[in-house]
């Protein structure tokens, strides 16, 4: 066992970068759609949600990976759930303490990270069969892949739906029809259907660039 794998070997870096593109949890595996639609009406909750999921996923992966040889196979799901639930409660408390208004906005969706398919999926598919360090990278990568889509969707929805970014108004007030201008915010961008269409457009763009992802 003299030739130990370097910390950032090519394989490990792949764990980090693949979920951002060719195995993205949202656009390729189509997991975690529910929260992606619910929290992306504005950019700020989308960013906070992404960070929360990254944190929970990375640490849950590490913990399960450490325990992987001691968990009895028959009760592994419930053990995974306990770990995720504990981490989610921690994250929820941190959010309530430091960004209370965003935590209010996210409301139930922080708690629902527990049921996010991405988490259970990574724990089952990766952490149960790999060492802690690769599991940690895998968690970071998948969380970031999820977060990247959330931020892109949130950016367009807030820009077109509210005319602002991070709550900062980009469209001058005098442009609006009510003030005698010609512009009007697109109310449909605020509604969940448009979030789904935005995700669909991202999938469209991604697959037309990366033709390998097109299934017959």
């Amino acid at each position: 066992m003299s030739d130990r794998e370097p910390l950032f070997s090519k394989k490990n870096l792949g764990l980090l970068s693949n979920p951002l593109n060719s195995s993205n949890p949202i656009t390729v595996q189509v997991l975690g759609i529910c929260s992606a639609l619910a929290v992306t009406a504005q950019l700020k909750p989308a960013v906070v949600m992404s960070i929360s999921v990254i944190a929970v996923l990375a640490f849950a992966n590490v913990i399960i990976s450490l325990l992987r040889n001691t968990i009895p196979n028959r009760i592994r799901i419930i053990v995974q759930l306990v770990v995720i639930a504990a981490l989610v409660i921690l994250v929820d408390q941190v959010l309530k303490a430091f960004v209370y208004d965003v935590s209010k906005q996210l409301s139930v969706f922080v708690g629902l990270i527990i049921t996010n398919c991405i988490l259970m999926g990574r724990l089952e598919a990766f952490a149960l069969g790999n060492k802690p360090w690769p599991s940690f990278l895998d968690g970071l990568g998948n969380g970031a892949g999820y977060g990247a889509i959330l931020v892109i969707v949130g950016f367009f929805r807030e820009l077109l739906g509210s005319g602002s970014i991070f709550g900062f108004k980009l469209i001058p007030e005098s442009w609006y029809i009510v003030n005698g201008g010609f512009y009007s915010n697109n109310g449909m961008m605020i509604l969940p259907p448009m979030a789904l269409i935005t995700v669909g457009v991202i999938i469209w763009v991604q697959r037309s660039k990366n033709r390998k992802l097109i299934e017959d």
């Binding site: 029809i177 009510v178 009007s184 697109n186 109310g187 449909m188 961008m189 509604l191």
Partner: peptide
Amino acid sequence: AFLFFAYPGQ
């Protein structure tokens, strides 16, 4: 329908 939901004011 798109206009109806996107720009109800108009």
